[in-house]
Amino acid sequence: MDRALGLLSLVASGDGRGVPITFLTDASGLSRPTVRRMMIALIRAGFVEQDAQTRAYHLGPESYIVGQMAVRRFDLLGLAMGNLLALSAESGDSSFLSVRRGSYAVCLHREEGSYPIRTQALQAGDRHPLGVGAGSMAILAALPEAERRIVRDDVAQEIRRHYAGYTVGVIDKSVAIAEAQGWALNPGQLMANSWGIGVALRAPTGDVIGAVSIAALDSRMQPDRQPMLAELLTREARAIERKLERRLAY
C-alpha cells in the first residue's frame, strides 16, 4: 500500500498533466511490471485514469471525491493563503507552502513578491525528498531522530541519483543547524544563486505536516537579512497553526 499510494502522489505531482510510466518508474525506483500492476489496481478503484492515446496517467474521479472530503477538514492552503500574501508583501520575495507526503515534500503554492528578479527553484506541484530545499529541510529537522533515519534510508538512493548538491553528510549538518536555530537554510544547494529559509508547520497533535518558506537570490539572503526573514516565517507559521487548531476544534 505504501508503494501504491506513493505512485498516486507521483501522478498528482503532474499538476493536471499526464504522467508517463517512465517517470513513475524513475521516481519510485520500482520495476515497470510492478508499477503497471499497481496502476491497474488504482484504475480499478477510480483513483487513476489512463489516456487511451498517450498512455499517460491522470488522477481519476475518486481522487477528486476524496480530496473534496479532505478539504472540508483540512484546507491548509485556504488557511495559509493570507499568511503567504503577508510574507511576500513584507519580504518582497517569493513565499511557499509545502506539505509533507511521507518521505517527500510537495509544494502546494508559490506566492510572488514585488522584487523584480525572482528565483525559479520551486514551483507549485514540485516534489522533493525531505531535506532538499529550505521548506523540505525544515520538515526533516522537526521530525524525531528515529523518523529522520527512516526518511534518510528511504530517499538516499534518489538523492544520490538526482541531487548533486546533496549528500547524507550535507543533510545531517543542515539538520543540526536547523535544530539549533529553529529554522532551515538552503544556501543554493538545489539551484545555484537561489537561497531559501524554511520553518516547519505542526498540526495540533504535534505532527509535522509541512512548512512555509521564502526563496530569493543569494544577494538577498545574506546573514544580515536571514534573522529578519526567519522571524517573519516563524510569526506566520505560528499564526497558521493557530488557525488550524481552531478549524479542527469544530
Rank of each mutant, 00 (worst) to 15 (best):
R3S: 13
G14N: 03
R17F: 13
I21S: 14
F23M: 13
F23E: 13
F23S: 12
F23A: 15
A27G: 02
M38G: 14
A45P: 00
G46N: 03
F47G: 04
V48C: 04
V48M: 03
Q53G: 03
R55E: 08
L59G: 04
L59V: 07
Y64L: 15
I65N: 01
G67L: 05
A70T: 05
V71I: 14
R72M: 05
L76I: 15
M81A: 12
N83M: 08
L85C: 08
L87Q: 03
G92Y: 07
R100P: 00
V106G: 05
E111W: 11
E112L: 15
G113C: 12
S114T: 14
S114A: 15
R118P: 00
T119R: 10
L122A: 12
Q123R: 15
R127H: 02
H128G: 00
L130P: 00
V132L: 10
G135R: 02
P144E: 11
R148K: 07
V151D: 01
V168T: 13
V168A: 15
I171A: 05
D172I: 10
E179V: 14
E179W: 11
A184W: 06
A192R: 13
W195Q: 02
G198L: 07
T205W: 06
G206A: 09
V208C: 10
A211W: 00
V212C: 11
S213N: 01
A216N: 01
L217N: 05
S219F: 10
R220W: 04
M221H: 01
M228D: 10
E231V: 06
L232P: 00
R235Y: 02
R238L: 12
R242S: 06
R246W: 12
L248I: 11
L248H: 03
Y250H: 15
